[in-house]
Design a protein around this nucleic acid. Structure first.
Ligand SMILES: [Mn+2]
Ligand SMILES: [Mn+2]
Ligand SMILES: [Mn+2]
Ligand SMILES: [Mn+2]
Lengths: 217, 217
DNA sequence: ATAAAAATTTAGACTACCCTAAATTTTTAG
DNA sequence: CTAAAAATTTAGGGTAGTCTAAATTTTTAT
């Protein structure tokens, strides 16, 4: 069995490896896990011993097949619990991440299976992130960033890249919800901010910073 | 904040203190927590430093008000999660204890509050144990053991004292479920086994060992 | 090409929790 | 009332995960 800490490292390695292609650096892991580089090095040696990562000193790190399988299992649990917290318990999408960080480590295959069934086999979590399959595959989405959409196009808001409470509350405030259809009316040449029209007919101003963190279809 | 381990010790002290009145011994704790007496002594010193227990060397241990408040909070969470697992996810009452042992440590007041609401403010867990109030009071039940019921009496099965999978499966097999009305027809003078009649009209033989672990009203 | 900077690893240490063996205190029996 | 037995604590040590400071390797910039 693996500890909470090991599970968190695997998950973090998965995220960083997919952020930019290639090996994950010790410092990047230290930053993400809020620890120091020396602590990361210790853990990497341990994960390598357990054959969960490929690790050569000074050369960065990559998940093995088994390591990736485990990482995806944790991410699957995390996202299913987030769905539960929002859809069944009525939490806001900005309130669930921290709780799911704990729930994801509960050790019971049966629990995850039943939860999935209970929730109706959801495909996406409350932030639009795809839920890995029970077999351990991460579904492809092919979304673009709103910041890359041309003027005149109509698109559907599918997911957020940033998960902070402030960002999500800001979207709520602007009436930007997932599934919402928006038409890009103007792109400001100077600061790349966009003016979009939402289904209600209302126009919403979106800064480049925000547009870069919205995924559309 | 308190660790999983500290929470488990508090809960165990609560159970043992209520099993027999009075101070809880180091050895009893070591047995219940599946550790050694020396480890228990270490932890008792720590809990005493945190003012969660009254502890004098060689004299056994007792919860402080704050310690009892925490213990009841953990027990409340445990029992609410058991209700969730049985009523919402469809687990059997013999399958939920281990999972609830992990879920009870999830740190979020809001989560417990919402779960309670979602479940409809249940008073009892799947084993008939009362759920402590949000304010931290353990409801009184006043149940008797089935082994203390006189011949001829009709009673209602309210709770089980033993929680092992084998025991609970045995009850399922005998069609003895909580809420079930039973009439005591015969008490065998030699081995104190009882013959009861259940609502369906069927007669069920219950050994003294089993009758001692059934609570009725 | 090489020296400075940055990244990473190693050395040594700390806390939480657990263990065995030895010492101490309390309880029990004669 | 004492001696043996039982319970408990102390001493010394182990593992997991963390840290700081020092050493080492890789990268970057002249
Ligand atoms: Mn999340
Ligand atoms: Mn999410
Ligand atoms: Mn239980
Ligand atoms: Mn229970």
């Amino acid at each position: 069995m693996h500890s909470f800490t090991e599970e968190n490292y695997l998950k973090t390695i998965y995220y960083l490896a997919n952020r930019r292609q290639g090996e994950v650096s010790t410092n990047a892991l230290a930053e993400m896990t809020a620890t120091k580089a020396a602590s990361v090095t210790d853990m990497l040696r341990k994960l390598a011993d357990k054959q969960l990562i490929h690790y050569k000193k000074y050369q960065g790190v990559r998940l093995t097949d088994e390591g990736e399988r485990l990482a995806l299992q944790i991410i699957r649990r995390h996202r299913l619990w987030e769905v539960f917290l929002v859809q069944k318990l009525g939490f806001g999408w900005d309130e669930v991440h921290e709780i799911a960080e704990e729930l994801e480590h509960i050790r019971s295959e049966e629990l995850v299976t039943r939860l999935d069934t209970y929730l109706g086999y959801p495909q996406f979590d409350p932030h639009g992130d795809p839920i890995p399959t029970p077999a351990g595959k991460m579904p492809e989405t092919g979304y673009r960033k709103l910041s890359e959409v041309e003027a005149g196009e109509g698109v559907c808001l599918m997911a957020v890249l940033e998960h902070s409470t402030e960002f999500l509350k800001h979207l709520d405030h602007s009436q930007l919800t997932l599934g919402c259809v928006v038409t890009v009316n103007e792109i400001n040449a100077f600061d790349k901010s966009v003016l979009v029209q939402i289904a209600s007919g209302r126009s919403v101003f979106i800064s480049h910073e925000v547009a870069r963190n919205l995924l559309v279809n």
